[in-house]
Design a protein around this nucleic acid. Structure first.
Lengths: 184, 184
DNA sequence: TTGATTCGGAAACAATCATTCCCTATTATC
DNA sequence: GATAATAGGGAATGATTGTTTCCGAATCAA
């Protein structure tokens, strides 16, 4: 069932919510229509479950990237680098469910809207935490405004997904190199 | 007719392409179904026309913002400020057609995909131009990598629209203040 | 082996979608 | 002033949508 949900994640990432028919879903999940409706109340419930699964997976990947660094600044650098890599190439063209939900559903679907809003704040807090960590260990100057910088970095990560989906090439080292100036 | 197209822009910005029925369109445009199909070949053609109109309008607004500055750095600062303002509040919740098209259609609709890609490059070139202008007039250091910085700034502007649509508050002065570090 | 129960699959359902067709005004032309 | 031509409006159409229902197969207990 989890593998079927993974396949649903993939379809929703590629096609978005409205362009995904339940025919597309059953084909991707290798399940019959009846089976999908046995497991979920409706299409919306499938999407919500897919969203949660995607977010959990991405969060784990981001923590793993952070763990590669040895201090706050390096951890943040690896997080940004990870975001660029995931926004690029075929993975980038597949799209991000958070960005997709924010753009396509957030305004008209209060449930998704609240969930997206909360997730962005979670991500922002994680970055702000890394900045404060860097300030504590001396790798990031104390005068850096952690909250403002974190919010701008969230904009960068979300924007990367948009630009990556639009097939502009993204060079991780170069872009992150520039972005790290925000910590000066 | 142009006023009807403006209303179409508004609906597409709020609801996206797939969630906008032609019933929504006729209601917003104050036109009957037949009249819409007299003026445009199909829904897709309405969207393309709305897209072009939106892009033209936004481009004009951005040039006006740039004109407020007296040198390259100040022009760029006003452009970024303008992007934050448009990403915020009710205007921000209405959404951006470029971002919406990139996320919802770019991957499956080659026509829209090419158009979005080209538009992002145009915007990027405009920003890169402002950076070089600043380097020529001495307001921006010569060691700044114009192309990489412009690409990152495009990520910021697109990300702002995502974050704004998700109802996170955006403080123009603070965010732009941080972003200007990229020109150090 | 038999009975009950759970699970997946395909056909049927109503609703909604984009699109077309036809009719009615309104304008312009002769 | 009559007529042709055009633009706009709304009902009809066929396809597709999300959802439900019903049926068969497989699993487990007795």
């Amino acid at each position: 069932m989890d593998t079927a949900l993974d396949r649903a994640v993939r379809v929703f990432r590629e096609r978005g919510y409205h362009a995904t028919s339940i025919g597309d879903l059953t084909a991707a999940m290798r399940l019959a229509t009846g089976s999908v409706y046995k497991a979920f109340r409706d299409k919306h419930a499938v999407f919500l479950a897919a969203f949660e699964r995607y977010v959990a997976l991405r969060q784990e990947q981001t923590r793993n990237a952070a763990a590669k660094g040895t201090n706050g600044r390096e951890r943040l650098r690896h997080v940004l680098l990870s975001h660029v890599e995931h926004s690029q190439g075929s993975e980038g063209r597949r799209g991000c469910l958070v960005v997709g939900s924010a753009v396509e559903l957030s305004a008209l679907d209060p449930m998704v809207g609240a969930r997206v809003n909360a997730q962005l704040k979670t991500n922002e807090n994680f970055i702000a935490g890394l900045i404060r960590e860097g300030q504590a260990d001396g790798s990031i100057p104390a005068h850096v405004e952690a909250d403002d910088t974190a919010r701008l970095m969230i904009c960068i990560t979300q924007g990367l997904r948009v630009v990556g989906k639009a097939r502009l090439p993204l060079d991780g080292e170069r872009l992150v190199g520039v972005a790290m100036k925000l910590l000066a």
